[in-house]
């Protein structure tokens, strides 16, 4: 359904980075983009939505060209007809919950909107304005509003990251229901391994602007749960050694068999991978 191959120079917190991503997404999949912050996940989503222009490459969705740098085609966001849930939800504060949904849907379709409000358990809140709602409620409004557009493609930018754990779990179920009921191809940005295990049927792992691995959550997440670091010190005490590794500004202390540390030197860069995800 979606074929995307794009390049884009990004200026991030860690200097310039070139985002170079090629991906194919099948119809009705629930795909997660996974990776550390600054890896380019949100940028991929924004380029797919037309909110950011890639430097080069092309995006084709359902055999329709959305972006082609060579042919100079770039559909505007409003021509792409997709649902997008922002990290900050982007609810219109001056409209009630129902008005938010009505504004999003192209034609007047009160029944569809009432169904969505019921499905998201928002019936009671329909006449309230978003600023008076809790985070979890706002999240459900944002999702309902995206669905009110009847999109064929739904993009979610870390939709659950701002919520407390119990609300998060409930909304994960809610997302699963939505995906099953509406059969919308969904791409979700997340950096929560548990969430991905539960929701996604396909994971794409981004690292520093590159797609480093993809596949089912089971296959990929072990690789995904890895960090790179620099050895700060090695203390050998008989059969065991204590290795201190600096990882993202913190120092990890690892106790390892001396046999595995004999090739290590202070200043080396090493990769620590988790075997299983708890």
């Amino acid at each position: 359904m979606i074929a995307m191959h794009i390049q884009k120079k990004l200026k991030g917190a860690e200097g310039e980075m070139t985002l170079d991503v090629a991906l194919n997404i099948k119809k009705n999949q629930l795909v997660t983009l996974y990776g550390a912050s600054g890896a380019g996940k949100t940028s991929v989503l924004r380029m797919l939505a037309g909110l950011m222009r890639p430097d080069s490459g092309n995006i084709t969705v359902n055999d329709q060209i959305w972006f082609d740098a060579q042919q100079n085609i770039n559909l505007k966001p409003r021509q792409r007809q997709l649902g997008f849930v922002f990290q900050d939800y982007a609810l219109f504060p001056h409209m009630t919950v129902r008005e938010n949904l009505e504004f999003a849907s192209a034609q007047k379709q009160p029944q569809h909107i009432s169904e969505l409000l019921e499905l998201m358990e928002l019936g009671q809140l329909a006449d309230q304005k978003p600023p008076t709602l809790s985070g979890g409620q706002q999240q459900r409004v944002a999702l309902a509003r995206a669905l009110a557009q009847r999109p064929k493609l739904l993009l979610l930018d870390e939709p659950l990251s701002a919520l407390d754990p119990s609300t998060r779990l409930r909304l994960q179920d809610c997302l699963l229901d939505v995906h099953r009921n509406f059969e919308i191809t969904t791409i979700m940005v997340s950096h929560d391994a548990n969430e991905i295990q539960k929701l996604a049927n396909y994971v794409m792992v981004l690292e520093k602007g590159r797609l480093i691995t993809q596949g089912s959550p089971q296959e990929t997440l072990t690789v995904a749960s890895q960090v790179d670091g620099e050895i700060v010190s090695i203390e050998v005490e008989g059969n065991t050694s204590v290795v201190r590794v600096k990882v993202q500004g913190q120092t990890l202390q690892l106790t390892l068999p001396s046999a595995t540390t004999k090739d290590m030197e202070v200043g080396n860069r090493i990769r620590i991978a988790l075997d299983t995800v708890m």
């Binding site: 505007k76 409003r78 997008f84 922002f86 504004f103």
Partner: peptide, 8 residues
């Protein structure tokens, strides 16, 4: 951006 994405 949300409004643009709604086709407005």
């Amino acid at each position: 951006e949300a409004a643009y994405l709604m086709g407005k």
